[in-house]
Simulated scan of single mutants.
Amino acid sequence: MGIFSRKRSSSSSSRSSDHRMPSLCGKVIMVTGGNSGLGKQSIMEFAKHEPAEIWLAARDTHRADQTVFELSRQFPNTEFKVLELDLASLDSVREAAETFLYSANRLDVLLLNARAGGSGPPAMTRDGYEGAFGVNHMGHALLTKLLMPVLLHTIRHNRNRGNVSDVHVVVVSSVMMHHAPRRGIQFDKLKTPPPKYSPFTFRCYAQSKLANTLFARRLAREYPQLTVAAVHPGVVRTNLMGVLARHEGGGGVLARLGRPISRACMASVQDGIQNQLWAATSQDVVSGEYYSHMGVKGRMNKLARDDMLAEKLWQWTEVELENYIALNTRYSD
């Protein structure tokens, strides 16, 4: 069995449980947050199938360089490149996108894996957004929009050569999105820091993960040429519950809220990456869907299905990012 060997009940999915990752020969992949955990393991699995390039986009370039050195020795047939990217700074996102666009010839897989928030005190990004929302949604949304020229160029290039035109954008969301505020996205509070460790602090992370799912849904509608998916990776040995328990003496509302989910979803890193790897490479992905497990779609609440909310978030984001989106590249046509 390959990496996609998790068995599922027939009631969950009719797809085969022995799906193998296809050849990635000649492909270019970008992974945000690839220094450790799910991102690093995903890169290692991609590398086993010998893509041409894997770009590790990360804020800590020293750690990224160490990771690339390690991976290059294990997988000499793939070129690994570090891309400095601080998702908490829109200027940094723009600079990273510009660097990539003038360096790469194509982009076949964009895996938006990095995350912030949920396990620490509230923070604001450099651009004035609540920390989790600013990194998880705004930073990734801008990166995706700025990389769109090369994503679409890759599709055209593939079609012109008679090849499969599959280009995948995978947004790592979370089942935690079900604990977003009742209105879904509290637009009036996105630029206001929540009180330290209040219930809303935890909900900020959930709100950002809901935004990830809505963004993927709307992105798929905007660009039907792409294959877009939002995925839940499983809670993989995070310290979120420990932080909350220590802060609240083990019995506070935030810890109680998270423990059942943590117990139900805890997985090894190897298991946790299967869903996002499948979504990044399988031709069975239905664009715009949210996958709770490999090949299992549709397990989301009304807020995540709300096309009006997705449209409102899309338009709000467009306005917020309008000063950053215009970027002349050699792929514009």
Rank of each mutant, 00 (worst) to 15 (best):
T78S: 09
N158K: 09
L87P: 04
N163K: 11
G162K: 12
T67Q: 05
M177C: 09
M177I: 01
V68D: 04
R73S: 15
R126K: 13
A57H: 07
T125R: 07
H157T: 14
L143D: 05
N158W: 02
E50G: 00
G184K: 07
L142E: 10
V167E: 14
M138I: 12
P51Y: 00
Y102L: 05
V135W: 04
V175Y: 12
D91H: 10
V82C: 14
L111Q: 10
V68Q: 09
G134N: 05
Q66G: 12
S72N: 10
N105S: 14
R63Q: 04
R59L: 06
R94S: 07
N77F: 03
A58E: 12
D166I: 05
K81P: 10
R156F: 03
L90S: 02
G131Y: 07
L56K: 03
N105T: 07
V167Q: 12
A64G: 15
L152Q: 15
A114I: 09
L112V: 02
S165E: 15
G131P: 10
N136L: 01
W55L: 12
G162M: 12
A88P: 12
E130F: 02
L146P: 05
L101G: 04
K145R: 13
S119G: 11
D108T: 06
I54Q: 12
V68N: 10
A58G: 02
T67N: 12
L152K: 13
P122K: 08
P76L: 06
A141H: 08
T144F: 08
V109H: 05
H157Q: 15
M176S: 14
V170F: 11
T78D: 07
A116K: 00
R63K: 13
T125Y: 09
H137P: 03
A52T: 01
A141Y: 04
M124A: 03
D60R: 07
H153L: 01
L83C: 09
D60T: 05
A88W: 08
R156Y: 09
M177Y: 10
F69Y: 13
T154H: 11
G120R: 06
S72V: 03
L85E: 09
V170S: 15
E70L: 06
N105P: 06
L83S: 02
M138V: 11
F133P: 02
L56G: 05
P76E: 06
F75E: 11
H178N: 09
G139Q: 14
R73H: 13
N77R: 14
V135G: 00
E53K: 10
L110D: 04
P181K: 08
R161C: 13
V93Q: 05
L147M: 09
S103N: 11
H179P: 00
E79C: 15
G118L: 11
T154F: 12
P76T: 10
E130D: 00
N163V: 00
G134P: 04
D108R: 02
A97P: 08
A123Y: 06
D86H: 07
E53N: 11
E84A: 04
A116N: 10
S174Q: 05
A88L: 13
G139D: 13
V175G: 13
H140R: 00
A64C: 14
T125S: 08
A123D: 02
T99E: 08
M138P: 08
L107S: 06
P181S: 09
G117Y: 14
H157V: 12
S173L: 11
F133S: 01
E70S: 07
G117M: 15
A104C: 03
R63D: 01
G134E: 01
R63S: 07
T67I: 08
S165D: 15
